[in-house]
Nucleic acid binder design. Structure first.
Lengths: 245, 245
DNA sequence: TGACAAATATGCGTTATGCATATATGCTAT
DNA sequence: ATAGCATATATGCATAACGCATATTTGTCA
């Protein structure tokens, strides 16, 4: 026990032996009825050559949000992305170099933007999109596999962070309209349902999904309809900006 | 923009100009149909004399959970308390001395333990329990008042953190059985309902509350009943330890 | 012009919820 | 000892939400 002494309240402030602070970002997108995330390959030790979540150290003069925006811009080439804080991981052995505490975030992008990441991934070798596997019904740990279906051991504790992010997103879908961040501006009810089903990993009842969504007040009919779909076109909706009553 | 250079990947690790890291704890308890929290009076600048959440710097060799336990033990004299991480606050101007990022937690204690804190508060002048006001229906900011009903400006951004904690607890009550952390081991259904009502700030329907709780599978009848209550005594329940199936 | 596929609408049984009412039971005052 | 009290507990019912099945509508394509 080593309390802050009243004699020197700034004891800890002057002391340089403090944990380092990072942000890590779980970037998620839905495409082809699968949930994908974006990983970057580490060039340097520790975990050189391993795939990890995009992340970086928090600078003295930037907020956590600014650090996330810098990471997304620098490492993935994205700006203006929706993200929220997920959880802060502070176990002692997360990083073999030294003590590092990481404020994890999850970010959501629509299919169009995710496509640009996929193209970027095709060009560079240091970035990849990986299909997020279902957690087993048991809620076991996520096991990531690459395009050739080889098990992929992520660096640091990032596999655990990915699992927490997916779990959080699934929970959020049940009581917030966060799904719209995974869709283009205009979308049909069935597209929205498919996104929910993809994230949740289970089929949803079409009628009650429609009723709930329309009753929620979060959706707004645009008056436009689908085109060239080979069947009766559906109404296109957009998410209503929540009035700040 | 000052990216981590591949030439020196440990650039930031070696650099001492990193944010300081603290934990702050919103300690909550229910008593007399009110929700209370525990504040400590700061002895030193900044905010000397102001009331703040108990908190402290995270040491290099302790995890976040260990830091919280140390803070609860050192500043409030409590051990073995239920707590969970709340949110990490990282705005630039939180602390006038230097950049400080705080991982906020909320902790819940039963009335018996809260009573010991209240006694301790009566003895020492550096600790107090404060009734948490309802947020208005508008969800406006919490305004803290002391026992003499004087407005109390908390130090740092702790008023905001308190508001987030109450909001989180209210949300959690709707889908998890956290309420039992605010009760003694054995309790009646009406006591549990009163706790929920106190936290949520609104009356609940007795019948559907009973039905939901009994159907949830979280409760277990102990076979014992209340004593000396001047009316028909109620069954005493305890929370069933969730099997890890 | 008709087949097709999905959108949209309607009906209905099941279940959850809110409310009202009736009965049970330990304690207390007389 | 007993009547009355306050709350626990049980039952019934109207309403709303939900899952499921079925019918109808409407662009597109062969």
């Amino acid at each position: 026990m080593n309390p802050i002494t009243p004699q020197n309240p700034n004891h800890d402030l002057d002391h340089f032996e403090r944990p380092a602070l990072t942000v890590d970002v779980v970037l998620l997108g839905v495409s082809e009825d699968s949930l994908w995330t974006v990983l970057v390959r580490r060039a340097e030790p520790p975990f050189a050559g391993k795939w990890t979540l995009p992340g970086g150290f928090v600078r003295l003069h930037e907020s956590l949000d600014e650090a996330v925006e810098r990471v997304l811009s620098t490492k993935v080439g994205l700006g203006d992305v929706f993200f929220e804080q997920l959880y802060t991981f502070g176990e002692l052995d997360r990083d073999p170099r030294t003590r590092v505490v990481s404020v994890a975030h999850y970010a959501l992008v629509d299919p169009g933007r995710f496509e640009t990441i996929a193209e970027s991934a095709a060009g560079h070798r240091g970035i990849a999109r990986i299909e997020v596997p279902w957690e087993g019904e048991t809620g076991g740990p996520v096991e990531v596999r690459d395009a050739e279906d080889r098990a992929l051991a992520l660096g640091f504790d990032h596999e655990g962070i990915l699992g927490v992010a997916v779990k959080r997103l699934r929970g959020k879908l049940n009581y917030t309209p966060v799904g719209y961040q995974l869709l283009p501006e205009r979308f049909t009810l069935l597209q929205l349902q498919r996104v929910h089903e993809t994230v949740l990993g289970r089929p949803l009842n079409k009628d009650s999904f429609r009723r709930r969504m329309l009753a929620s007040g979060d959706l707004e009919a645009t008056g436009r309809r689908q085109r060239d779909v080979g069947h009766r076109p559906a109404e296109l909706y957009r998410f209503r900006r929540r009035s700040a009553i």
